[in-house]
Design a protein around this nucleic acid. Sequence first.
DNA 1: ACAGATTATTCAATCGTTTTAATATTGGTA
DNA 2: TACCAATATTAAAACGATTGAATAATCTGT
Lengths: 358, 358
Amino acid sequence: MPGRKPKPTRITLQDVARRSGFSASTVSIVLSEAPLSRYVAAQTKERIRKAAEHLGYRPDIFARSLRSRRSNTIGVLVFDISDPFCVLILRGIEKAMQGTRWMPIIMDAHNERSQFERYLDLLMERRIEGLIVVANWLFDEGGLLEKTSHEAVPSVVVGRDVSEQGIGTVIVDNETGGYLAIKHLYELGHRQIALIRGPEKLIDSTRRWQGIERFARESGWKLDPSRVRQLPDALDPISPFEGGLELTAELLATGQEFTALIAFDDLTALGALRALAQAGLSAPRDCSIVGFDDVPLAALSTPGITTIRQPMEEMGAAAARRVLDTLREGEETSREHDPVLEMLPPALVLRDSTAELR
Amino acid sequence: MPGRKPKPTRITLQDVARRSGFSASTVSIVLSEAPLSRYVAAQTKERIRKAAEHLGYRPDIFARSLRSRRSNTIGVLVFDISDPFCVLILRGIEKAMQGTRWMPIIMDAHNERSQFERYLDLLMERRIEGLIVVANWLFDEGGLLEKTSHEAVPSVVVGRDVSEQGIGTVIVDNETGGYLAIKHLYELGHRQIALIRGPEKLIDSTRRWQGIERFARESGWKLDPSRVRQLPDALDPISPFEGGLELTAELLATGQEFTALIAFDDLTALGALRALAQAGLSAPRDCSIVGFDDVPLAALSTPGITTIRQPMEEMGAAAARRVLDTLREGEETSREHDPVLEMLPPALVLRDSTAELR
DNA sequence: ACAGATTATTCAATCGTTTTAATATTGGTA
DNA sequence: TACCAATATTAAAACGATTGAATAATCTGT
């Protein structure tokens, strides 16, 4: 049979209606489980479902969205998907969305503000019902979400603290993270500890610093400021690596003694590792190193990097849950009863880049 | 002014029609640049555009898609987005799609076949007009795309060769890649070269092997099979690391002499690096190592990994172009005149994990 | 001056749902 | 008996665009 067309006709609600013997209205009500379906006889439902299945009916999402004014989609705007940090958050978001009637629609802004805005526009055009921004590397957040959305759709930012702008935020508890990092090194016997702080504009960096200071106060020990460096403000996703490399080399060149180093994040730690190697030194023999984040490659480098883990999947899931909760509330009660800022606990992950002071 | 509602009403085509003084038809024709717009007076177009802009009109994509039967979206189904390999391909796809009227809609199958099928279904439901599958780590492709699509929408797979199933494929030229890797080591003076092949089921692995054999033939040198190992078939994204670690340890344990090692990919190389370190050896001093892929972390480890680069962004872009070309052709002539298999050239990237034989 | 092509615009049907309001059909109760 | 509430189903009007066919208006050549 040569010219037999496969399936020239779409199966519509009407088809199901005809086959089941009920009207399109009833079929719609049953299949979409609208409130009115409460009143539909069980037997009717049964027959309609059978018919739909038999015909292989799939609702047309465009018609559906057009009429119902809902898209069943949540926009997920990622600042830079090439950052492994973001990827794991995505996972969490997606898993949390599994099995709900929402689906994520993901866009990647490539680290460019203009793209970010363009894509945000595109998302709004697609009538997203909620928005999650995954922001790893984001300065100058001023009014990022003001222009569009945020008023219109429930939004959450994960990875950067924008709670001061009144925008829902999910982040790791940076202060505790800093505390854990220094505590670990201190307990290993290190006292001469160098530090590479994050970019100045990044609030996270400050928080981690505060955690470190708190530990210093509590333990009556003092961090020597001459061993502290700071990464430059830069958007490039591998700039922390370069920064870690250069700043560590610089620290070594000054002749400053240090037996351990806390890096702003794992990439910075990798840079530090290389700087050590270039100076003929190695971790943890000559210097212990602690990173931050626990991106996948922290486990794969040699030595594996001891680091402060951000629970990235959980953060993504938390962000998704927040948005979905707000959405569901909207259906019944009024919203806004949860705190704007949600902080998840970090954890120390022991690997091979740190060791007891000899 | 307290209770002033922001924008309760959507701006529709009708509004633009009224304001510009033309009918909805004309407005639609002008704004969507339909073929008929050829006949619309320049002045009319001007007026309509002005009106649309002034009102801030945005077409409703649901209504548009419902009526026109096109979604202007291309489905992008990624096998495992946590693989950096995939991420760069995504970049390429996205960039190639920039400025066209299509937009990618990305889904991540988490390395699970069942998810893959579910998401493929979801994509079809959204009436994607084209499909790009980004498959890094994909065995058992048998009839992956048969069930759905592939007949219905133009499809391309990037990263794995499925051209034998008649499905468009974009991959790197693995044979040349293997050739380049061995050639590099040979020219550095290495003759005792160990090899960790990829999983048996992966055709890529065989191709790279063929490249290596070709070089051996051409140079009259012979690879000792006792120095060859093979990664197990496994789906886990970090299994190559573990495999590289174990197999290298095993090679070292046999007492086999080797001054260089070709790893199946960069992760395998990282595993090998660690195995060396655990044996108190280091690259490139005691053993040179070549990877494959050039994922971002190849540059970040210490030593940086000399590797065979897959032009991932270009591959993504090529895949996107293929799909878009087919789509555009469909509008005019008949399709299918391009080859099913498209191979892009790899390149040797020199870093610090290889060195001349002392 | 007229047929026919070309240019310019519009009418009205349609895409496939959801939803509001209306219509039947019950059974229970005043 | 008549009325009301609860149960069960449906008719018909949206939702906001696109498009094929129809209508006007203008031009071209004979």
